[in-house]
Design a protein around this nucleic acid. Structure first.
Lengths: 293, 293
DNA sequence: ACTTGCCATCACGAACGCTTATGACCCTCC
DNA sequence: GGAGGGTCATAAGCGTTCGTGATGGCAAGT
């Protein structure tokens, strides 16, 4: 189970072709074929069907492991490289869209900043592999509870903001006048599914523990990342959305009603490579100092 | 960053000696020396000081990564091996001591069971690497919240029990007559530190979010795994302990008062290798079926 | 000063891993 | 139906790598 073999295995699986993988990796097709053969003989079972090239059930499992493994390997290398690398003059921040609160933006240095919007699950990866110097992730959790992040590598997480959640619904909706809403009031509602711009419904169910068996029924699915569009969709009656209160407010024709039960908050956390305490002054230290202080 | 090199690196670091590591791994001392040299030249920095042999700061970081990496590698191999392995006739269960509730014990098959008590953090490892067929971990969490487990590998966790927590204190303690205790009532108390037999105090602080800055002051530290001894220590006035209510009750001379705030429960989860759905009937299926059903 | 144990280095042989070349097979197109 | 282009598998050759064994430098103990 050499990482090289795993690397070629995942690219073969991704491209569904030995020859394409070979081109992609700068190997010969023959080498790729031998790599796969070596893996299969080592593990004692077939990992891929040929013609068409697709992972077997065992191969699917291996893909999961290999992905995590290679990620971790990259993270380790990036982490060790930080010991020798020259102090950076610029700041590279990876952030999930809803993590960019006003306070966060205000803390950014004036120059030399690259801000990269990524889906939530990619943010820890970007920080771990050194693609970003710092990360900002948002999510929902019980008040003052840390977020549940996949631990791809030892990362230090610090909470930087918490605010209430709000349900966005059309202004004329019967529930729009309520001062607060309970999730149980909304079991029969239709929801907008917006994994990028909004809060994914499955996260909510995971944190809430939810009414078992009864999932969230989704109406429209929105794949963009723009929160205002999402609020507008909710206002137009295409379904309900859950947003942090500040993002939910002020959409024309929409009402934002705070969620009062279950007791959950929208939380933003700062992610840094762990063990980078004694950092020399620089853009990263400037940013994190202003955020925490 | 070949896994072989990492393996020899961690054993060298563990044994603090090149030659001993060589003996341990079945290599020559020369080979070990070359392995370390290869790693250091690859990463571009020294990992070990010689004479005495000890990891440098960078080496310490690498140790963390390497441990996780090798673990994950073993987990992957064990996981893939499950596809080919013959169905097992016996059942190997790894469990943290407080996870063994009466209900769990009742669900164990009558014969062919090996039950291994391990510290909490080792249970997921044992399941992931295939040393155990199933695992049982306990911990504290908010009601119906899953435990926060280190994800060494894709494991499926199912809650099997939840019960209130109780503070164990001497029968003559001024607070012993109370019907319930708040953790805030006890900020000034002395605690027993019992990582194996009791609930580690740092976990409590992590879940509670706790009175920041003010840690738990510990009196005596108990390194054994016996809960009754622990309760006896508490009864003798050596400090307070937190235990699941059922384990706390019935100790002579001790009072067990339920913890009412923060709202936390003692939770036990069953851990299985993920993706092992379509298992053939056997001791494992028998056990898990009885536990869940 | 001599021995002892440690790690580093050198030189050599075996094994590994990649390439080139070729074969077997399956589609498509004429 | 047969030629052609595509796929992956297999065989042979060859350079590199990786292990061993031997030797050297160095520090600590006697």
């Amino acid at each position: 189970m050499d990482p090289h073999l795993l690397r070629t295995y995942v690219t073969v699986a991704r491209l569904a072709s030995f020859s394409e993988a070979a081109r992609d990796l700068g190997y010969t097709q023959s080498a790729v074929s031998q790599h796969i053969a070596a893996l299969e003989s080592d593990l004692g079972l077939p990992l891929l069907t040929r013609r068409p090239v697709a992972p077997t059930p065992a191969g699917e499992r291996l893909l999961e492991h290999a992905g995590a493994l290679l990620l971790r390997l990259d993270a380790a290398r990036a982490d060790l490289d930080r010991f020798t690398a020259a102090p950076r003059a610029t700041l590279d921040v990876a952030a999930s869209p809803l993590a960019l609160t006003a306070r966060v933006l205000a803390a950014l240095p004036a120059t030399g900043v690259t801000l990269r919007a990524l889906p939530r699950e990619r943010v820890p990866v970007a920080v771990a592999t050194g693609e970003a110097d710092a990360g900002l992730v948002d999510g929902i959790a019980a008040p003052s509870d840390p977020l549940r992040l996949p631990d791809v590598a030892p990362l230090a997480a610090t909470g930087v903001a918490e605010e209430p959640l709000a349900v966005v619904l059309p202004g004329r909706h019967p529930l729009a006048r309520r001062p607060g809403l309970r999730l149980d009031d909304l079991v029969d509602a239709r929801w907008l599914d917006a994994p990028a711009a909004g809060i994914p419904l499955d996260r909510l169910r995971a944190v809430h523990g939810g009414p078992a068996g009864r999932g969230f029924r989704t109406a429209l699915r929105y794949e963009g990342a723009d929160t205002r569009t999402l609020a507008a969709l909710a206002a137009a009656g295409h379904g309900l959305v859950l947003l942090p209160l500040s993002a939910a407010d002020g959409a024309p024709g929409a009402a934002a009603v705070p969620l009062v039960a279950p007791r959950l908050v929208h939380r933003v956390e700062l992610l840094l490579p762990a063990g980078a305490h004694g950092e020399p002054p620089g853009p990263v230290a400037e940013f994190t100092g202003r955020l925490k202080g």
